[in-house]
Design a protein around this nucleic acid. Sequence first.
DNA 1: TTAGGGTTAG
Length: 642
Amino acid sequence: MNNTSRHCLSLLTNCKTLKTLKQIHASLVKTGHHSDPFFAGKLILHCAVTISDALHYACRFFLHFPKPDVFMYNTLIRGFSESGFPQNSVFTFIDMRRKSMVPPDSFSFAFVLKAAANYGSFIAGIQLHCQALVHGFDTHLFVGTTLISMYGECGSVYFAKKVFEQMLEPNVVAWNAIVTACFRCGDTKGARKLFDMMTFKNSTSSNVMLAGYAKSGEMELARKVFWEMKVKDDVSWSTMIVGFAHNGCFDEAFGYFRELRRLGLRPNEVSLTGVLSGCAQAGAFEFGKIFHGFIEKSGFNWITSVNNALVDMYARCGNVGMARLVFQSMPHKSVVSWTSMIEGLAMYGYAEEAVEVFHEMEGCGIRPDWITFVSLLYACSHAGLIKQGCSYFSRMKDVYDIEPTIEHYGCMVDLYGRAGYLQKAYDFVCQMPISPNVIIWRTLLGACSIHGNVELGEKVKERLSELEPNDSGDNVLLSNIYAVAGKWKDVATLRRSMTDQKIKKSPGWSMIEVDRTMYSFVAGEKSNKTTAEAYEKLKEIILTLRIEGGYVPEVASVLHDVEEEEKEDSVFKHSEKLAVAFGISRLCKGRVIRIVKNLRICRDCHTVMKLISKVYGLKIAVRDRSRFHLFNDGSCSCKDYW
DNA sequence: TTAGGGTTAG
């Protein structure tokens, strides 16, 4: 290789943007390197794999190339697969064999099988398996392992085991692959059996077990394997931390993170995104801030995934301003960063801002993906932007060629339903090209509950009962619809049938962080000291609100047909009221009160929060199951539309 | 070629 060639190669390797890539391409043409498959292959590799928005450039270049070799084909197959177009990988593989008569090598199979695994296509996978048989690659170590992993992803542990059994001398990687496949297909016992049978294990083998147990929610078994491991690498630690966070064990996640630091080990970006995700789910703002400080100090603040997790954490912990600051200071923003910001703003009802961010994103040349549109439509539905919502729904298909998924349809049902166009929402569901799932019907039932439509509510509940007969939430929603309409007989019948079928209402809980401890309150629970303290404070607050704020309890949605006074008593037990009372009693003045709740906030609690914010001059952030409510000076950021 | 992470409608 001469100096010019070496220079071209180094330019290609360091190229980061499509613009410089085009310049390098031009210089390759000048020097005559462009028709050399080696350089052409490298060029495509960088277009397709390294630079996110340059795949189309790679395709154009590839199509005009006179005789692409197997390396070029493999690169394009890999590029399609890694950029989220797995079907195109398969088409390219077929083209390679049929049109160009280029025989595939082991890499071609490995890449294309990974693509088939990515979109979980068992049919494509089995056809590729046949091809591998024809070319004699099925017992090849690399290809065999990818086949096992593909069958695992496609849910066929039977075929995965068959491939494994036919391998002549499976190495530790193949063993790890078959254990992973068992876990993916839910065969936890099979995975354990194979793990115990392994004569040689590497650190990945144990990490596979940790990940498998963590994904099946078996954290105790994961913990056992973890502490039995002689050498724990950073993947082992991050698997545990993330595993705990995903299984709702936030204290454990934070504990393992602390232990990791106590041992003098440096956490990696995966552990950090894991703990941040834990903070986001739990609403642990103070913890989140500590991790942010650590991230700044230890230089993780240039990593996009860590910043994305920070944006999400701040948004979900009630501080969308900080989420914005982190977002603005990010050195590089991916589609996930933009989507997280849109989603964050949408949760607060700041739909106009969310739409603005979306247009800014388009202006930067970032292509939105299907999740971006879910967030954007969510923003519109939660703020009553019906026209815009409809227009983005069609824009998604017409401009970006993104096929709407059940999630997008769900947003549209919510958009119409929440705004009161119940018949339109119902017709929309009936005309959907995808068959509606429980969530779609539940969204519609929720809308019927907001707008008090008994007739449609009953019709929708019937459909829900066919799909999921024993859901407590659905029964409670219908019961509320009856209660608001004053149909106490129907309420009683429904509640009797719930008792008969042993359907229990899931209790409402709220959490609040005080002095870096998370306190949780459950509706009606009076067993401990903190709850007693909260009840005492709440009594005093309610009295103040009655005198100074003119508060009258809204008890319409209380289930039973009982006396008004009893109904009042029942709404005073709501967990978010207890949490806010506890916050007022314990937190120093001037601090924002942040509450996380598992159910939707009720109308009476919403009123109380608004009044507290005015009478006590406090800012309160309540995250309910679906969105944020920021109470300040007597009003809420949701503009009472939720 | 095997293991860990961020955004997903109610």
